[in-house]
Amino acid sequence: MAAAGTLVLSSVSRPFNVLLMASDPPPEEGPWWGIAIDITTCIGCGMCARACKMENDVPDEPFYFRTWVEQYTVLNNGEVKIESPNGGIDGFKSSVPEEEIFKTFFVPKMCNHCSKSPCTQVCPVGATFESPDGVALVDEKYCIGCGYCVQACPYGCRYLHPEKKVADKCTLCYHRLKNGLAPACMEVCPSKARIYGNLRDRDSEIVRFLKEHDYQVLKPHLNTGSKLYYNGLTAEIS
């Protein structure tokens, strides 16, 4: 009887352990990962998108991307043309006559690893979550594949893996990060347009970058607590 009572009690309380402890502030130790992307130095080679697919077992078909590069072309008549053929993996060809162009640039996109992430908020079972070091991850052994997180991400950074049948997304190459290596997309970026680092470390490259540049996040009005900071973000970019 007592054993059954303990069983029932622990069963009820276990999932709530976290809630009970939620009044404690998040740990101030350990890294808190953030990303910075410099639009003014991105040369649109698409190496990042290519490397990401190789590193992370992302299907080759052009419907699944953890990171991709967009080419924005603002025409003289104010029209904005956005392209991302195969996510930029095959590089970019210029498609607009130069005399019509007002302004043009490349924008690399990836998961924003939001600190108030709308995607992890809606997961019904606790299969996607923010890791203690601030990376939004998916537990592929636990995900039920409902697709709600894909709907909730304002940046289109998630997809359902067609073979695994679970949600899949950028992990900031968590397996590399934990070994002290840069994420694959950053490792192969020739112009250092992408950097990552510990936002809690005052001397880190990323904190220095943020100090020296006028950064902005995507869709700031959605208050997602995005930790992907852009330099050179203009009004056209969404």
Binding site: G126, A127, H175
Partner: peptide, 22 residues
Amino acid sequence: FGQYGHYRGASLDDISSREMVF
């Protein structure tokens, strides 16, 4: 489950022990 938050704590190890390609 619930070790660090509302998720399977072991999944952090699963994800960080993935094979590197680069």
